[in-house]
């Protein structure tokens, strides 16, 4: 049999199975429709989604409040006594917010500090490189599809794999130290010195997510009508003029989306760090989500209340960023 008739046979079989399933479900749903009328049908269709969404997204979000305002080490909310805002007070019990050691929950403030520095540095570097790459890919380039895929490929890798690969490269006896020795320099404590570890955490997360933002920016650049540039060049505008007066303003909505999206994801950084530095050395690369994870799941006396209070504070930040994102999207659409 030729490949074509194989395909046809396959399609016929597959088609009749699908048809059978649809008809079978139709017997069931068709009679429900007769029962509830056409006005009830949309509720039937959103029901599965709403059930899952309600049980596993909305309900946990509300439960988080219960945890945040109750104390003790019990896991089930019924056994947890109400403590008011004590968990929050505990988090904010600080003599000087800039000196984590003066706080009751010194690890929380260390995590906050680490996260703030990480978010600012990571987003800046990320957006800068993504923009440069997108601008270059938007030029008349051979093999654009290939380069685009190469820059995107690391985005496909799981955070665990990314962490492992870079740990392998940056470890004391790794490739990079080998190259340094080859160049006549001495080894660097890439993962064992706090400053180096922080630096590499930023660079590795940029490596792993840059391609995604490059694609979005590239799409934004390509949606700019080319006759604008033609008109500009007839008017004798320089490349820089065209860039600052056409490209940048028209790319701004996309830029805003990219910046906000990358901010939201930077605040939540966890999985890459888990496999890459594990938060170390010491607490140098411990960020907020890891603090929450450690308090809720790994520390010997589990402080669910404190973990939940910290996650509510983080959620507040994220909601502000999300609203900014929605505003930006609206701007992009209209």
């Amino acid at each position: 049999m030729s490949k074509n008739s194989h395909n046809k046979l396959f399609q016929t079989i597959f088609g009749s199975i699908a048809h059978g399933v649809i008809s079978f479900v139709d017997l069931f749903l068709g009679s429900i429709q007769k029962l509830i009328g056409i006005k009830g049908v949309p509720y039937l269709f959103v029901l599965p989604n709403l059930l899952i969404f309600g049980l596993f997204i909305l309900y946990p979000m509300l439960l988080n409040f219960v945890y945040a305002f109750t104390g003790g080490s019990a896991f089930f909310p019924d056994n947890r006594p109400y403590v008011g805002t004590r968990n929050f007070e505990r988090l904010f019990a600080c003599e000087n917010f800039l000196v984590p050691n003066s706080c009751t929950e010194d690890l929380f403030w260390r995590a906050v500090q680490n996260t703030v520095v990480y978010v600012i540095a990571q987003v800046t570097i990320l957006v800068l490189f993504a923009l440069i790459t997108a601008l270059i890919l938007n030029r008349k380039i051979k093999w654009r599809g290939f380069f685009r895929s190469v820059f995107f490929y690391p985005c496909l890798l799981s955070p665990i794999v990314v962490g492992l690969i870079w740990q392998w490269i940056l470890q004391d006896k790794g490739l990079l130290n080998g190259i340094l020795i080859g160049l006549g320099m001495s080894r660097m404590p890439f993962l064992t010195a706090a400053t180096w570890a922080r630096f590499w955490v930023i660079m590795v997360s940029v490596w792993a997510s840059m391609g995604f933002y490059t694609l979005i920016l590239l799409a934004g650049l390509q949606s700019i009508p080319s006759d604008l540039y033609e008109a500009a060049s007839i008017d004798g505008a320089s490349n820089w003029k065209a860039f600052s007066n056409i490209t940048m303003p028209l790319l701004m909505p996309t830029m805003t989306v990219v910046i906000v999206l990358s901010l939201i994801r930077a605040v939540q950084v966890f999985e890459i760090i888990f496999a890459f530095t594990g938060g170390g050395p010491g607490t140098a690369t411990m960020y907020l989500v890891q603090f929450i994870y450690n308090y809720g799941f790994t520390s010997p006396n589990k402080q669910f209340g404190v973990a939940a209070a910290a996650s509510l504070l983080m959620a507040a930040v994220l909601i502000v960023l999300t609203l900014a994102q929605m505003a930006a999207r609206r701007e992009e659409v209209y």
């Binding site: 959103v46 709403l50 969404f53 049980l55 596993f56 997204i57 909305l58 309900y59 946990p60 979000m61 439960l63 988080n64 219960v66 945890y67 896991f75 089930f76 909310p77 939201i264 939540q268 966890f270 989500v289 929450i292 994870y293 809720g296 799941f297 669910f304 973990a307 939940a308 996650s311 509510l312 983080m314 959620a315 994220l318 909601i319 960023l321 999300t322 994102q325 929605m326």
Partner: peptide, 23 residues
């Protein structure tokens, strides 16, 4: 329904770890 879904679009799993484990 639509707005509730959109509002939770960006609130990640990581901030509701404990209650989701309970559920």
């Amino acid at each position: 329904i639509f707005m509730t879904m959109i509002a939770t679009l960006m609130v990640p799993l990581s901030v509701v770890l404990v209650p989701i484990f309970l559920v």
